[in-house]
């Protein structure tokens, strides 16, 4: 009966290896993301050199209204700046992103914005020629093109 028991042991070994590889695969991902997380929240990142105004400028860059290329402009710029330290790219992008909700083109009749304060909304209106159509929470407003 040695043959069958060796056969059975071999199968158990293969099952164990498979289960081990399932685990190793998940642990490897956890370690990779731990490094990414640490790199992202390190204090000495190039992206921190952006002033809030610069980030806002990036977010307000006009983009084409056709689908597919929207936001690609500032996406590329941030990508170039932040590529060497990818964490900066994400950080910069997500600081900038909440400022504007709809795709934006200066000719757009309506635009929904979500700024950090009501001053941000005023600034946006002045820069792009909009007026507030409806206000939500402070900093959130539906804007319509000023005549």
């Amino acid at each position: 009966m040695i043959g069958p028991s060796i056969y059975s042991a071999g199968r158990m070994a293969v099952i164990t290896v498979c289960l081990a590889l399932f685990t190793v695969s998940a642990i490897k991902q956890a370690l990779t993301h731990h490094s990414l997380y640490e790199a992202f929240f390190k204090p000495d990142r190039k992206g921190d050199n952006y002033s809030p105004m610069q980030l806002k400028e990036i977010a307000l860059r006009p983009v084409l209204p056709d689908s597919g290329v929207e936001l690609a402009g500032y996406y590329s710029d941030l990508y170039e700046v932040g590529y060497s330290k990818w964490g900066n790219f994400f950080r910069a992008r997500y600081v900038a992103l909440p400022l504007i909700l709809t795709r934006f083109h200066p000719s757009q009749p309506l635009v929904l914005v979500e700024m950090s304060s009501a001053d941000g909304v005023k600034e946006f209106c002045l820069k792009w020629g909009y007026k507030v159509s409806r206000e939500g929470a402070p900093g959130v407003a539906l804007l319509e093109k000023a005549p």
Partner: peptide
């Protein structure tokens, strides 16, 4: 035996996946 091993594996991969999920949403909450 296999259930015991697979149980340990399941707990570890769930924990690892939860960590990756948490790290991911901490970096890109949007």
């Amino acid at each position: 035996w296999i259930a015991l091993m697979a149980g340990v594996v399941f707990i570890i991969v769930m924990a690892a996946a939860a960590y990756v999920f948490a790290a991911k949403v901490a970096i890109t909450p949007e």
